[in-house]
Design a protein around this nucleic acid. Structure first.
Lengths: 251, 251
DNA sequence: CTTGGTCTGTTCGCTACCGAACAAAGTTTA
DNA sequence: TAAACTTTGTTCGGTAGCGAACAGACCAAG
């Protein structure tokens, strides 16, 4: 397990504020490991801790009665969870499950709320991130209605790739099906199609992405759209902060 | 056109704060009419005004490239739009179209931001409302994937009924189809089914709801779910405010 | 090596919705 | 009254994904 110091600056949201701001915040955080399958929140849970992943992937899943869970988004070190507290609500609307092991900076709600109040640059970043999360939920609503499984699968794989920072994903078709809200058979067909197009290959829970650009071309526009939203909103923000507090920009 | 005074207290969100808080806020508002078909925002627009409907219905619609617009939610006097500014983002992610004429209290962004900063009880309510909007977008994402047209139509009609405060809705099947993101033929079939079950009747753009409870039974759980979310989050909130600032609760 | 478990492939009939096209009924305008 | 338009009804073939069931391939443990 790395130290707080070692992961300092490994979460892209926290990176958007000055070293000083970030230092004050991270001081209240504890570094915890994210183990595959860990459930960080269940729907309706009162939230005790806020997580800023530095490595690993968490899926953010909605369940409606009578239907299986469905992934709304994946969260890696570009994000945090959950946004509720930013809006003064300490109930989780979704389930959060670790889908790739890693680490996260974890802060208790009380300290988080205090930081929100006394750390304006961080508050700004997090509010903006909450907006991004909202936009992506709206995007998902339309995507789920209009786009076909093969394209949605391509999108999901790309989202995994981005957050895993690797072309090799450890994930079965069964799990992909659950996340996409479809049957495993559907994923077998779609994944078979992707493989025949030489975009990916897979066997027994190991997916290898061979042609990222090909996947992008096949994925629905929602993939690029979500990335653009993130970049636009949080980059604009970075510039804004730069005006107020002269900081060196992160990578 | 009624006066500011006459509609004072006609928006349920503004009603959640004390008379004093509300008065200070409404003082900066202008009462504007919402005419059928008016487009208040287009996606990507910079936001100049924030709206608090007191009468009428606005649809909040997402478009993704290559697909038609799709309604994410309807907004009446229980809500406001858009939530972006609450998160310090003044870009609209969606289109907002007046679907039933009425009135709204409109406030310029500058005044709104100032109020947010200096009116903590209102800020709290609006942040909570933003959370509700987020939860409902997440709900819509799952609903659009899992639920069938007939159930989604029933839900949409109930949402109209609630906000119109009337059993008679002026809306064609063509428009319903656009809002649901399906073909008009699909709505004809679904609406025909509802009519055969004596839940509604309609002719040439006039829908009459005969059996609200029947519609509720047929609508997907998302209808009740959304209402519960709204009630829980904003009611909890009301109590919370009551602890801080002793106020008389609204209806 | 065998057994049992996990993962992937395939098939069957079925349903919801699609796109396109046209018909019929009601409403407004001339 | 006739013509133009809007709204609703119906039909056609096609497709994406459903539920259920089973077969084969691969892996790990005994």
């Amino acid at each position: 397990m790395p130290t707080n110091q070692a992961v300092f600056g490994s979460n892209r949201l926290l990176n958007l504020v000055t070293d000083t701001c970030r230092k004050g915040f991270v001081h209240h955080c504890e570094l915890v490991s994210l183990n595959l399958g860990d459930v960080l929140y269940n729907p309706g849970d009162f939230i005790a801790h806020i997580y800023f992943p530095v490595k690993g992937i968490i899926s953010w899943e909605k369940q409606i009665i009578g239907s299986p869970y469905l992934v709304i988004t994946l969260i890696g070190n570009e994000g945090m969870l959950s946004i509720g507290l930013i809006l003064d609500v300490n109930i989780s609307p979704c389930r959060a499950v670790v889908r790739k092991a890693g680490f996260a900076l974890r802060i208790p709600v009380s300290a988080f709320v205090h930081q929100l109040e006394h750390n304006p640059p961080l508050r700004l970043v997090l509010k903006n991130y909450a907006f991004v999360a909202y936009s992506q939920a709206v995007q998902a609503a339309a995507c789920n209605l209009f786009h076909q499984l093969e394209n949605r699968l391509a999108r999901l794989l790309l989202m995994f790739q981005d957050r895993a920072k690797s072309d090799e994903l450890h994930i079965t078709q069964e799990l992909l099906a659950q996340m996409l809200g479809v049957r495993r058979v559907g994923v077998t067909k779609a994944a078979g199609s992707l493989q025949r197009q030489n975009l990916i290959s897979y066997s027994r829970g190991n997916v290898i992405i061979h042609d990222t650009n090909g996947l992008k071309a096949l994925s629905c526009v929602c993939y690029q759209s979500d990335k653009l939203t993130y970049a636009n909103i949080l980059h604009t923000q970075t510039n804004y902060i730069a005006d107020v507090l002269p900081i060196q920009l992160p990578i």
